[in-house]
Amino acid sequence: MATAQSILALRKQLIAATGESQNSEDAVIILKRLKEEVVATDELLRETKIGVTVNKLRNNTAKEVADLAKELVRKWKADVGKTGTKKTSTAAASTSNSTAASPSPGPSPIPAAKSPEPGRGPLPAITTASSAKPAASPAPESQSPAPSTSSAPNGPLRRQSSGGPPRTHKTDGIEFGKGKDATGDKTREKCCELIYDALAQDSGAPSDLILSRARALENHVWEENPPPAGSATYRNKMRSFYLNLKAANNPGLREGIVSGEISIVQLYNMDPKDMASEERKAENRKLVAENLFKAQAAAPQQAETDAFQCGKCKQRRCMYYQMQTRSADEPMTTFVTCLSCNNRWKFS
């Protein structure tokens, strides 16, 4: 069974193989390895984010990659479902055994609730004839401290999985402006707070790690743009980082910053377009191609022809024009528009 570290390495290779290079053969090999080696659990998928990466490949242009991704998603859903069913049946069996173990009323009808097995959490309340009165009271909330003593990362992950609010500095109990690392400047502390919230919203990392990354980023931006000359640049930089990091469709950037895969210096030197999500980058490339297609300022008048066949509707009623989009020694680019379905394509 693959470990979280090996899955993260495979995820990184998969992203590289399905990026701009579009190496479908490598992507197929990696997906087959994931199918053979990974037995999915809820915790493993949250920790490695491999499910998010594979899920995006279901619409990949390479049919084999898309089919494998769909098959892998179905398999992992089944794995997680089996794990959840096993936990539920185990808890039910534990409850029934505990009830059967104490059929007659006595001074201590539920001794098993005092020492639950490690890793299972608190056992459910057991109602017997002698314990009917305490069970009806709302007091058990204050009598079972186990849920409230969970670590900061586990709490937010449960809220996310149940559709609750995202993780923030308030849910983690972080107070900015206090402590030895405080800057003493309200603006800087507010910037640290915003960066922390952006990084922590769907992260399972410890709060200390996220706090250190947020403060490191703010401190580097401050040092690179000292006041008063750099105040405006400092605010613009921090605003740009916050907007890109908090984007719901950009988990890869957040994960890279928290894990240290992307250094603070690398992040500082990135353009906003480099920080964008993969979906946004694809949209930008599509817009550039579309704008180039529409750039007809120096193009000759379009002519109708039946020399080209539309790949979409298979009709031959087309308009075309030519432009010199590359160097002079390269052939001209022909832009064709189908008059039947408005499909457009180009070739050199």
Score class of each variant (00 low, 15 high):
M1I: 04
S6R: 07
I7D: 00
L8V: 13
L8C: 06
K12A: 15
Q13L: 08
L14W: 02
T18F: 00
S21T: 15
S21N: 09
N23F: 06
A27S: 04
I30T: 05
R33L: 07
E37C: 06
D42W: 01
L45W: 01
T48C: 03
K49S: 10
K49A: 10
G51P: 05
G51E: 10
V54E: 00
T61M: 05
A66K: 06
D67E: 15
K70V: 10
E71F: 02
L72D: 02
K77L: 08
V80K: 05
G84Y: 06
K87T: 13
A91L: 14
A93M: 10
A100Q: 10
A113N: 12
S115M: 04
L123A: 03
A129N: 03
A132D: 03
K133S: 07
A135F: 14
A136F: 12
A139D: 08
P140M: 05
S144R: 11
A146S: 13
S148Q: 14
P153A: 05
P153I: 05
N154V: 15
R159S: 15
S161C: 02
K170G: 01
T171D: 03
E175F: 02
F176R: 02
G179E: 04
D181W: 05
T183C: 08
G184L: 06
G184C: 04
D185R: 03
T187Y: 10
E189P: 01
E193C: 02
Y196E: 00
Q201S: 13
L209E: 08
S212K: 15
R213C: 00
R215H: 04
L217W: 00
N219I: 00
H220Y: 11
P226V: 04
S231C: 05
S231R: 08
A232G: 05
N236K: 15
K237F: 03
M238Y: 02
R239P: 00
N244T: 02
N249D: 15
V258T: 08
I262L: 10
S263G: 14
V265P: 00
V265S: 09
Y268C: 02
M270R: 01
P272S: 09
P272N: 13
E278S: 15
E278N: 13
R280Y: 06
A282S: 14
E283D: 13
L292A: 14
K294R: 13
A297G: 10
Q302R: 15
T305D: 05
A307M: 09
C310I: 05
G311D: 10
K312I: 08
Q324A: 08
R326N: 12
D329L: 02
T334I: 13
L339Y: 04
S348D: 12
